[in-house]
Computed example of a mutant assay.
Amino acid sequence: MATDIRTIERPSSPNTYLMAPQGYCSTAQPDADSPVFDASAEVLFDALLGYIANQSGWKITEADRAHCHIDLVAATKLLKFKDDVTIDTLIVENMPGKSRLAIYSRSRVGYHDFGANRKRVSKLVKAIEGELGISA
């Protein structure tokens, strides 16, 4: 079942990371704002699928092209802990050919993730920025 980032309820433990445009989530405050990419939501979605396919220990559990939504499990390198990641690619209103991301990464176990979810999201976003570019 797909996770709806717009209505997530974050735990009190510091083992999640949320990047999303302000106002996208009705029930949670993002940790960071998403950049605007110089690509359509569909092109961004395809770039994400390519990136994910090249990540060791990452497995897509759901990819819905019609809704530009991805759910995946990312295993940590050292101890193979499984973390859940949900990604939405979003059309930017009044900016044709531009898109943004909403990404919610969370640990399944442990109270603290020691920044693992933030690092995962940051690495993903930097890779996609390098491939597609961002809008100034």
Rank of each mutant, 00 (worst) to 15 (best):
M1A: 13
I5C: 01
I5L: 02
T7S: 12
I8V: 13
R10P: 01
P11W: 09
S13M: 12
P14V: 03
N15S: 03
L18I: 03
P21R: 10
P21D: 07
Q22G: 12
Y24W: 01
C25H: 02
A28I: 04
A28F: 05
Q29S: 13
P30L: 06
P30R: 03
D31N: 15
D33H: 14
D33K: 15
D33G: 09
S34I: 05
P35R: 07
P35E: 05
F37I: 00
F37V: 00
D38W: 07
D38Q: 12
E42R: 12
F45H: 08
F45Y: 15
G50H: 13
Y51I: 04
N54K: 14
Q55Y: 06
I60E: 03
T61I: 14
T61C: 08
A66S: 15
A66L: 11
H67S: 15
H67F: 11
C68T: 12
C68Q: 15
H69S: 06
H69V: 07
I70M: 10
I70Q: 03
D71K: 07
D71S: 09
L72Q: 06
L72Y: 05
V73Y: 10
A74P: 00
A74Y: 00
A75Y: 00
A75Q: 07
T76D: 08
L79G: 03
K80N: 03
F81W: 02
K82M: 14
T86Q: 07
L90P: 03
I91A: 14
I91R: 11
N94E: 09
N94L: 04
P96A: 06
K98F: 11
S99D: 08
L101H: 08
A102E: 05
R106F: 10
S107F: 06
G110T: 04
G110E: 01
G110D: 00
G110V: 02
G110A: 02
H112W: 10
H112T: 10
D113V: 11
D113I: 08
D113R: 05
F114C: 06
G115M: 09
G115Y: 11
A116Y: 11
A116P: 02
A116K: 10
R118V: 03
K119Q: 06
K119H: 05
R120Y: 06
R120V: 00
V121K: 00
V121S: 05
S122D: 13
K123V: 12
K123G: 13
L124I: 15
V125C: 05
V125N: 01
A127C: 08
I128N: 03
I128D: 01
E129G: 02
G130N: 10
E131H: 10
A136R: 14
